[in-house]
């Protein structure tokens, strides 16, 4: 039995320690907002936060995250900054198929949480690990810029 803290709730899960966190979240905890895309940390669809930092849950053995605070897309909506990000995503009509967007939003939120100064380069560095096959990149950039401006950290 492993003890996991996901979205503020403690879960006891009976899984092999080498099972990647992604599958624990999706198949055991049934939180399917976090997506499977590649399994090798190359697409970012599985991005969740571990103690506030963005991590790729597909390559993270669950035993290595015990005791840390995991946040998934389902657990962010209470946070004002996250709501701003989600709002910006809708205002800019970012999503197309939408499959990658949970991961995109988690990466964007981590950037916004972390940085006191954001510009295009910072967006590149923080978001380049998240693939979007529909190629909604232009709008992702605009949405992040929008939120950065509204919270006063946009510094081109």
């Amino acid at each position: 039995m492993l003890t996991l803290n996901v979205n503020g709730t403690t879960h006891q899960v009976d899984v092999p320690g080498d099972m990647p966190l992604l599958w624990v979240i999706r198949d055991i905890l049934k939180l399917t907002g976090t997506k499977f895309g590649c399994g090798i940390a190359q697409c970012g669809a599985c991005t969740v936060h571990m103690d506030g930092k963005p991590v790729r849950s597909c390559v993270l053995p669950v035993q290595s995250v015990a005791g840390q605070e995991i946040t998934t897309i389902e657990g962010i909506s209470e946070k004002p900054l996250a709501r701003k990000v989600q709002r910006a995503w809708l205002d800019h009509e970012v999503a197309q198929c939408g499959y990658c967007q949970s991961g995109q939003i988690m990466s964007a939120l981590a950037l916004l949480n972390d940085q006191t100064s954001i510009n295009d380069h910072a967006i590149d560095l923080a978001m380049a690990g998240n693939l979007c096959r529909c190629a909604t990149y232009t709008r992702i950039r605009e949405a992040i810029k929008d939120v950065s401006e509204s919270v006063g950290v946009w510094q081109p």
Partner: peptide
Amino acid sequence: ATRLDTPTKVNGQAKFTIDLDMPGMLI
């Protein structure tokens, strides 16, 4: 017009085939 399908695509609630779960289902 604002897309009708996007609100659940920004909060993790949108279900794709890969997200479905049925009683008694195995992977």
